[in-house]
Write a protein that binds this DNA or RNA. Sequence first.
DNA 1: CCGTAAAAGTGCAACGGCTAAACTTTCTTA
DNA 2: TAAGAAAGTTTAGCCGTTGCACTTTTACGG
Lengths: 200, 200
Amino acid sequence: MDETMGRRARKKARTRQALADAALELFLERGYDAVGVREVAEAADVSVTTLFKHFPSKEALVFDLDEDLEAGMVAAVRDRAPDCSVLDALCAHLVRTRLCLHSGEPDVRAFYAMVEATPALREYQDRMWLRHETALAAVLAEAAGAPEGDLRSVALARFALEAPQLVRGAEDPEAAMREIFGLLERGWDGGGQAPPDRRA
Amino acid sequence: MDETMGRRARKKARTRQALADAALELFLERGYDAVGVREVAEAADVSVTTLFKHFPSKEALVFDLDEDLEAGMVAAVRDRAPDCSVLDALCAHLVRTRLCLHSGEPDVRAFYAMVEATPALREYQDRMWLRHETALAAVLAEAAGAPEGDLRSVALARFALEAPQLVRGAEDPEAAMREIFGLLERGWDGGGQAPPDRRA
DNA sequence: CCGTAAAAGTGCAACGGCTAAACTTTCTTA
DNA sequence: TAAGAAAGTTTAGCCGTTGCACTTTTACGG
């Protein structure tokens, strides 16, 4: 626990952690939907009001990371190997962080199993990633030398972020991801202009 | 009111209509968020329980069409002019049905203004369209001579359906739509294989 | 060093969407 | 016409979430 924080901030961090821990334990034990917010608060020995001062929603109790994930994705694109295209780097990173959930310690696996099994959490997770769309679009535009907010970059960011969601449930999700990224690359690679407009 | 339905079904349809009408009137008059479900039920002279037997959620009261929209989209692709590409047809149709909300009678305009002004409704609307993804993917696969459930078609359907959401707020949404569809077309036009894999 | 103000936390009460259960009424049909 | 399915009602409540009034703790400037 960081010493530079002052007692105040440390206490705050501790209650926040207590909440997240209690929530995770209860959720894994009995299922997300079967545990109420009141219960979580009680387990952390805190009032419900306090819980919502730390987390904006019940779902947020589960995904306490979020910002790190965005940073990681942006870094994966910006600090890619020199011989690696932007889309290849992005594809590899998404495969690593959103498709390979079967690896890692049992805790992690159990966690992702729960998320996968709870519709509310799956939705929340997908929306969470979509919230990083603008950040990704910015770094994509930067890499392409386009102005920030450029439509092509925004669209590409959106489509790339949606790809994992699309390939879930395929026989070989990783190959499917590469196929989608191949298609996107073909579209986005060339010059700035669309192909000849066949509408007169 | 269809004669072939029998008194029973007719009554059911009438209650449903009463609910939708009451809801729309109240929502337009005072705003979606300011009207509770209990109120709508009362205005239609029905219990809340009954309301939810007819509509799965409060948002569903507003979008009572849905299936027609899916049918229209599928038809737009399948019955396109012979000299018109699949993507052109789809793009035009989406522009017509999801971007040109400023036209039409004042009632319609007021309706869409309300939707646009209410975040909950905007979200619901977007999700609603996404639900037509499989139907659209099927017709796209058919048009491309690919097997149903083909990944390329599914991805294309998803991206096409998300495009309107992406271009909202652009200076010239219609041109933006065409640009996105141009990019997609470049990617999806060619043979079935991705470009040379630059990862060894 | 102390007073003060911000910040963390509490308790309560309520709102609004939504549902289960047990029950009544109304239509259909065998 | 008896039986049963389907529409509807009543009641009562859960759940996530929020506002409000209030107490305690921590930080900081005069």
